[in-house]
């Protein structure tokens, strides 16, 4: 049972981080369907950083450098979306889809090449970080506490404060609701949208590195992140684009995702003899049902997905 709680919290934190990322992008007026690809890139940056860490690096350094690498990779990758969506008025759905495919393909190519250079016989896309990963974990009486949980909580509080209590956040949201009006009072819509997309890259990258360190100590990058970026979008919609609701929504989804990891350890669930694939499907099914009930009266930012054109009124 403790394991279930632990994994629920871990997965909820990942979903929350990524969903908050989506939330920033959409509040600025850009739909970020490329979160999945951003997660993969962030995961790759962080994982490679960990695997290259020399032995004996202090835990604090490992945490700082890994998180930094993931953030930088996520943000750099999100530039692809920002350029296309903000300056070239590209279809954000196509761009997002391309970014998801590109993320997995690029990460696979990069990791494989690095593996092959280090060892000519190694053609796998696996990165291992068994020892380094321990830096993130503190064992408290059987409960594996991860520093990522702290990072996620800080991100949650920071998101709330930034969005609702700062001038920047309120301006950002104005750009997603009515960019023309925002522009007319002197807000630079393009800058705000850049900020929104870059922040989503930051949070998406963080979510990515957390995802590949949860419950495993190596990652095969050909697999990508199994639709997690889209689950996060479902969390964001269910959370009505509000950080506090997103946190609660993430807990629900995290619970169902955690079930597939630990159901065999829970006596009454194991006794039901439900095939494991059913548990694997659960988060996706739940998200479909939840979306069906919450999308009707959408609370989405009004101008999301519409390229901003200064000439239009």
């Amino acid at each position: 049972m403790l394991l279930l709680v632990q994994y629920t919290i871990l997965f909820a934190c990942i979903l929350m981080l990524v969903a908050l990322g989506g939330c920033f992008a959409e509040h600025s007026g850009v739909i970020n369907l490329g979160l999945e690809g951003i997660m993969v890139m962030g995961a790759m940056g962080g994982a490679l950083m960990m695997s290259f860490m020399p032995d004996g690096t202090s835990a604090l350094m490992i945490i700082l450098l890994t998180v930094l690498a993931a953030i930088i990779c996520g943000m750099l990758y999100s530039v692809l979306l920002a350029v296309a969506a903000i300056h070239f008025k590209a279809d954000q759905t196509i761009i997002g889809t391309a970014m998801n495919m590109l993320g997995t393909a690029a990460a696979t190519v990069i990791v494989k090449s690095i593996n092959t250079i280090n060892d000519p016989d190694n053609h796998s896309s696996i990165v291992q970080y068994i020892d380094e990963k321990k830096a993130f974990i503190v064992n408290i009486g059987g409960f594996e506490f991860s520093w990522f949980i702290v990072i996620a909580l800080v991100a949650l509080v920071a998101s709330y404060v930034v969005l609702y209590k700062t001038r920047f956040g309120l301006r950002l949201m104005a750009c997603g609701e009515h960019p023309q009006a925002a522009d007319s009072v002197g807000i630079n819509v393009y800058k705000m949208r850049w900020a929104g997309v870059l922040i989503s890259g930051l949070l998406g990258g963080l979510g990515g590195i957390m995802y590949v360190t949860t419950g495993v100590s190596e990652w095969k990058f050909e697999y990508g992140v199994a639709g997690f970026g889209f689950l996060a979008l479902a969390v964001m919609i269910f959370g009505k684009w509000k950080p506090q609701n997103i946190a609660l929504a993430a807990l629900l989804f995290g619970f169902f995702r955690a079930l597939s990891n630990v159901y065999f350890g829970i006596d009454f669930l194991a006794a039901l003899h439900i095939p494991s694939t059913v548990y694997n499907m659960l988060p996706y099914i739940v998200s479909l049902i939840v979306l069906a009930f919450t999308s009707k009266h959408s609370a989405a930012p009004k101008a999301e997905g519409i390229p901003y054109d200064k000439g239009q009124r």
């Binding site: 639709g227 979008l233 979306l291 069906a292 999308s295």
Partner: peptide
């Protein structure tokens, strides 16, 4: 009937 974004429902149905 429920205004669910077809991209997100599509991805979910892919995995299911």
């Amino acid at each position: 009937y429920f205004n669910v974004n077809e991209v997100i429902s599509g991805i979910m149905l892919n995995w299911i």
